[in-house]
Design a protein around this nucleic acid. Sequence first.
DNA 1: AAGTTATCTGCAATCGTTTTTAGAAATAAA
DNA 2: TTTATTTCTAAAAACGATTGCAGATAACTT
Lengths: 350, 350
Amino acid sequence: MSNATISDVAKKVGVSESTVSRYLSGFKVRNSELIKRAIKELNYRPNIMARNLKSGKTGMVAVIVPDITNPFFAAIVRGAEVAAGDDYMLQLISTGDDPEKEEAAIRRLVGRVDGLIYVPSKENSPAISEIEAKTFPVVFVDRVISKMKNFDSVLADNHHGALLATKHLIEHGHTNIAHIAGPVTSTPGKGRAEGYSAALKDSKIDKNPDFFVESDFTVLGGYQAMMSLLNLKKRPSAVFVGNNLMTIGALKALKEAKVKVPEQMAIIGFDDHELSDLVNPPLTVISRDAHLQGALAMATLLERIKEGYQFPPKQLKVDANLVVRMSCGSTCPYRKTNADKHVLSSSISS
Amino acid sequence: MSNATISDVAKKVGVSESTVSRYLSGFKVRNSELIKRAIKELNYRPNIMARNLKSGKTGMVAVIVPDITNPFFAAIVRGAEVAAGDDYMLQLISTGDDPEKEEAAIRRLVGRVDGLIYVPSKENSPAISEIEAKTFPVVFVDRVISKMKNFDSVLADNHHGALLATKHLIEHGHTNIAHIAGPVTSTPGKGRAEGYSAALKDSKIDKNPDFFVESDFTVLGGYQAMMSLLNLKKRPSAVFVGNNLMTIGALKALKEAKVKVPEQMAIIGFDDHELSDLVNPPLTVISRDAHLQGALAMATLLERIKEGYQFPPKQLKVDANLVVRMSCGSTCPYRKTNADKHVLSSSISS
DNA sequence: AAGTTATCTGCAATCGTTTTTAGAAATAAA
DNA sequence: TTTATTTCTAAAAACGATTGCAGATAACTT
């Protein structure tokens, strides 16, 4: 009952293997009806591994994310998956933010997939020779590796998002504004920290170094960061938290310390969530379309796979919107958006 | 600069391809040092597709889930991934609850992966001949297909969980208890509905058919279900919602209708979330270890791949705990758990 | 040193396709 | 009917590894 091969089909019909192969590839063939029948009767399915070996293609694309459990990354993966359609299947790797695992994973991946969508954990993650040699197509999403800024990427407008967030706080009269940042060694960590600083500078607010605490994008990290903020002799009155997970942690800390939001502490997060609306109080956040990011990444990857490195790297950016709810003191929720223009800029750098 | 093959290495060293191959497989070889050097210099990496073709193994396992964006499924996938370790890589497919897509996906998967972890959307999803013929190992997680109940599976103790939930409501004095159920054509939908009924029966509470509304496991579905409950002339005073997404929808409906929780309506959900603690009011839920479910599934799948269908099907069950917070009227949060015994029963059925 | 045993090696076949090449059959042109 | 042209076909050579077999080295025995 082991699987029938193309030669079984050929034998049964009385033609050569090559004829069956041509039939399968859509060429016109004399006994196509007989072949069709034989295939059905033998329940023949072409051996994909043999086909791959011959063609040098695998029909697969890998996606490396720090953690599929983070809804933001899940959205990216989903976006990539729908954009891939039936053309490519997805291989998933969660690295748990460990650059060594990333490198090991990529090493295994080369030759096993036709391309890679890559969310590196740190900007100084090791570069892979195959990628640099442009023999293994990759597009970076959300984060880039500093040595490889010149590759395809789909980022978010972190700077603008952070600017929006911080300004929103300022507009509510705050001047003692803290920022719980992600690792500044990561693209979004850095970008958002810079946006935060820029907003303060724009409004001529002095930066208090105590109010900037660098954390690690995790719930626990956010919790500890907020706790340290609360332990300051002079507390901030508002805080901009640099990602979704840390915001949850910060909220837990606030709740535990019985600090009233937004009265005693205003808070704004980065990345929206289905539940943000339902927490107490409803959470004001910066939001961007992660699904779209994933889809754009897949689209440019497929293009790159097909065309090779003929065309220059595409560096796409997705916009960030302010979703106003109630955690910053606003009383009436609203959304400040760039209308429908979600792909903000698509700078082509040679 | 195209990739070096094993024959390049062999030529460079002056040995035969088989010798290099043996070296790679860990046999003792005379010129191992030379070979090692040549491999490094040529940057030789064995061609996986050729290896697969020869061995008939792919080193890959697929995971089919309805939607990776649902944190519960993401946890399953993550659990499976860590359990796989370095032995197998994961291929991910989200089917969007479409049985046809499931079937198409499985068809493509056969021959491309060594086994499958499968969360089918409906119990009457089509059976696949390769699976039935036990020529393609599969383990079902969370849900099963009715025709294939005799295969490996890792379910949750839905019945007991639902019983716990409903009893908790009853203990708080409720008698008009509604259930927003998932599709009763799905394993958990059915199991939880039955647990709900059993609890009512145990307490000799008459079942009000108006209070049972079958929905679809989505946020929107939960929202609509709750709305229909609120539109009843005689409203229930408490509701047990059958999964995480529908709970979010129900909560949204409650908020929109300005119904006070738990005073006017007590609510308990199925599946916990990092944010459940932070919503208003903190949500009481039934929780189970989805990560563990995924890990167990992967473990039994790998075993199955290695051993074939010699040993009888394993049907594992993971326990469900009550996590008490405040959405049912309790004032002091606590957790009712089966201590550390998370794998409840492991019934071996021949 | 010769015989016996244990290791290691190269050759060739194999895995199941696709693709090139050259020849056979069919069709069109003269 | 013969020649020129177009289509199809089969045989064979890839693709890049692994493995059984038989012969060659090396390592022990006595």
